[in-house]
């Protein structure tokens, strides 16, 4: 299996939040992070101070960055990729079970290095053939900058069974020369869930707990197959 040069994971939850609650002090008090991490978050890093207010909470430690707005929560891994971010995300929602949330996305982002410019162009040409574009612009260069494929359960033409879906995107990497950036969004719409006994944020914690690892492995499988098949001679 191909190994990415850079791999990160993030959790994006849509709902109505109170950013002021989710401070480093609160995470530390509830044992979700240790004192050293809380100190790093409080002190700020790379010249960027912590900000916690009623409208927004933004801070980071050595292994995660957190941003909470009134309508969106996002937690992104930094440094070494670890399932610890999954535990942190699930732990936060376990502690605020009554928070109204409507959707959760499990995201995986990867930068892959390709051997040459030819390989780099081959991926773009296989995924987005240039026949039409070369006809439209015969004397100019055309290239893929952004491609997103939506994957929904069921058969095309039939009514959708669920609003949950996966979105896989391909772009040129802005970090690696002749690199490809791939992202995988596993979107769970909570209106699909029939576990009415659970509170919305408990549902989110449950989804993060039970689905994150399989999403991670599926993302790696998708990235590998996508690149391998694109680069077949």
């Amino acid at each position: 299996m191909r190994t990415a040069e850079i791999l990160t994971s993030s959790f994006v939850v849509v709902g109505d939040f109170n950013p002021a609650i989710i401070s480093p002090d609160w995470l530390e008090k509830n044992d979700l992070i240790g004192k050293e991490d809380a100190d790093v978050a409080r002190e700020g890093s790379q010249g960027r101070p912590m900000l916690v207010s009623h409208q927004v909470a933004v801070y980071e430690t050595g292994w995660f960055a957190l941003q909470v707005l009134d309508t969106q929560f996002s937690l992104t891994s930094k440094g070494a990729f670890s399932p610890a971010t999954k535990d942190l995300a699930a732990g936060i929602f376990q502690l605020v079970p009554h928070t109204p949330v409507t959707a959760v996305g499990l995201n995986f982002l990867a930068h892959f290095k390709l051997e040459s410019e030819d390989e780099y162009n081959q991926v773009g040409d296989v995924l987005a053939p240039k026949k039409i574009w070369d006809t439209l612009y015969p004397d100019e260069r055309t290239g893929l900058t952004d491609l997103t494929i939506q994957v929904q359960p069921g058969i095309r033409g039939e009514p959708l069974e669920t609003k949950s879906e996966k979105c896989i995107s391909v772009r040129p990497s802005n970090k690696i020369k002749y690199g490809i950036f791939l992202s995988y969004n596993d979107h769970h719409d909570l209106s699909d869930e029939d576990k009415i006994d659970l509170k919305p944020a408990e549902l989110v914690a449950g989804i993060i707990d039970s689905e994150w690892e399989s999403s991670w492995h599926d993302a790696l499988r998708v990235f590998d197959v996508l690149l391998s098949m694109s680069l077949e001679k």
Partner: peptide
Amino acid sequence: TVDFRAIRADSTPLQIWE
């Protein structure tokens, strides 16, 4: 009011053990 922060990511896992 709030800087749109860049999250620095520069590593990839070779193996993860639980």
